[in-house]
Design a protein around this nucleic acid. Structure first.
Length: 426
RNA sequence: GGAGACGUGGCAGAGUGGUUGAAUGUACCUGACUCGAAAUCAGGAAUACGGGAAACCGUAUCGAGGGUUCAAAUCCCUCCGUCUCCGCCA
């Protein structure tokens, strides 16, 4: 969420953000409510001060009865104002949670992904001198999965990796985790089970009614819990209600967790292959820093993902997301897309987001500034480290051989017992 | 799953209805003493919101929310969390 003071003083900026991001503009209602709320606060506080004063005199007063009566009268007056205040504050709070983060001035303006801009391209799609096999053929012929069986027993959008593909999955995860650890990230294994409030605090959802997330999030029946769609959720709340010393910033986390998503809006899409599932596994990069460090940290996070693409020897490109495509809570977002030969296209493997103070305001995560002793909200950022099994797809497709075997990228070979290839017709 | 105990400031720990935003200890910051340090002494220091140019003033906060009362850290209810024992278990 944004600071009400900021909204009050920068109505035009906020209105513009609503417009370019494609969200309904509630600023006018907010300003009216805010004015009334402050009026009521001043009023009730003045009356409360008066009442407190009388109450304090009661124990030592000669005539207690009249003071008690007086105090009671003021109490009744306050009660009426408090009622209105509570209602108005709840309304205001709900609307404040519907105001989007202000996008960065360097983000492309546009209403959807049509306006996204490619800003970087590394590596060239390899020319194959044989007929390349799409992922599902490679997986079939090497017995690396069992899609029909798994769908039958576990339902659609589930998968099981088998044999060398399962090993490869684990090797990629381990590789990325070790890499991030070597760069000073703290490795955190995050729970996937969490409370709805935690998901809400990550700022992907609007308003104050938590039930809005039911469409996207798996709720656990008969409990107050649900399944997180990313480790970002838990990492984002890891320091809630804390005041961190400035000297500790930036804090970098590499979170690993299973991720659960309903994929309600993706019916019929990516139903074949290892691309889209209700459960997948992800290493997530997450940073807490000072607001002025955001851009630097954004580059750092992006570069880590570039390195990972290069270590996996994948051709990739980078997309600057437009205002309309980046989402409710983001300042800016870059997608990293790897080359998927079978689709003759680049597809998203990771998404790097700069959130500013938006999430920290929801989680109340702050830091104390060295010189001034002021308490300020942290900025947060997140980027994918690697998401599996999707990342398996470009690895096996790009590195396939004519016999259906797959070359292991050099960086992964030590984690695959030194093997240089897996699979293939014996 | 069964039984019990508990949740106060950075930490420890008083406080069972009124002058307690909260004793005391400790950690922290500043000053004095010192060549410097330790020790000692003096002082300072929470967060949010509202008002104010500011100094500052007011209100709220003793896990969270609600209730009783003129008045709640203190009494009642609900929820959350922690700990101990038993059971179960990777």
């Amino acid at each position: 969420m944004l600071d009400i003071k900021f909204i009050r003083e920068n109505v035009d900026i906020v209105k513009n953000a609503c417009k370019v991001k494609g969200f309904k503009d509630y600023t006018d209602e907010i300003i009216v409510l805010d004015t009334r709320v402050r009026e009521l606060k001043t009023l009730t506080q003045t009356k409360t001060a008066e009442k407190n004063k009388i109450t304090k005199e009661i124990p030592t007063a000669a005539d207690k009865t009249s003071l008690i009566a007086k105090s009671k009268t003021i109490g009744d007056e306050i009660a009426a104002d408090i009622d209105e205040l509570a209602t108005k504050e709840a309304e205001l709070n709900d609307l404040l949670h519907r105001v989007p983060q202000i996008p960065s001035s360097d983000a492309p303006v546009g209403k959807d992904e049509e306006s996204n801009i490619e800003i970087r391209r590394v590596g060239k799609p390899k020319k194959f001198n044989f007929e390349l096999r799409p992922q599902w053929d490679l997986l079939d012929m090497n017995n690396w999965w069992a899609p029909e069986k798994i769908a039958q027993i576990c339902g659609t959008r589930t998968y099981a990796l088998m044999g060398e593909a399962a090993e490869l999955d684990l090797a990629i995860q381990t590789f990325v985790i070790q890499k991030l650890i070597s760069k000073g990230f703290i490795f955190v294994q995050c729970p996937a089970i969490t409370k709805p409030q935690t998901i809400f605090d990550a700022g992907h959802f609007m308003g104050s009614d938590l039930s809005v997330m039911n469409n996207d999030v798996f709720m656990l029946t008969d409990t107050d819990r649900c399944l997180a769609g990313t480790a970002e959720i838990v990492l984002n709340s890891l320091h809630c209600d804390e005041i961190l010393p400035e000297s500790e910033l930036p804090i970098k986390y590499a979170g690993y967790s299973p991720c659960f998503r309903k994929e309600a809006g993706a019916a019929g899409r990516d139903t074949r292959g290892l691309v889209r599932f209700h459960q997948f596994h992800k290493v997530e990069q997450y940073i807490y820093c000072k607001p002025e460090q955001s851009d630097e940290m954004h580059e750092l996070l992006l570069n880590n993902l570039f390195e990972i693409m290069e270590d996996l020897e994948l051709p990739y490109r980078v997309i600057a997301s437009s205002t309309g495509d980046m989402g409710f809570n983001k300042v800016k977002m870059h997608d990293v897309e790897a080359w998927f030969p079978s689709e003759d296209a680049y597809r998203e493997l990771g998404s790097c987001s700069s959130i500013g103070e938006f999430q920290a305001r929801r989680t109340n995560t702050r830091f104390r500034e060295n010189g001034t002793n002021d308490v300020k909200f942290c900025a947060t950022l997140n980027n994918t480290g690697i998401a599996l099994p999707r990342a398996i797809v470009p690895v096996i497709e790009n590195h396939q051989n004519a016999d259906g075997s797959v070359n292991i990228p050099k960086a992964l070979q030590p984690l695959m017992g030194g093997r240089k290839t897996i699979g293939g017709r014996k």
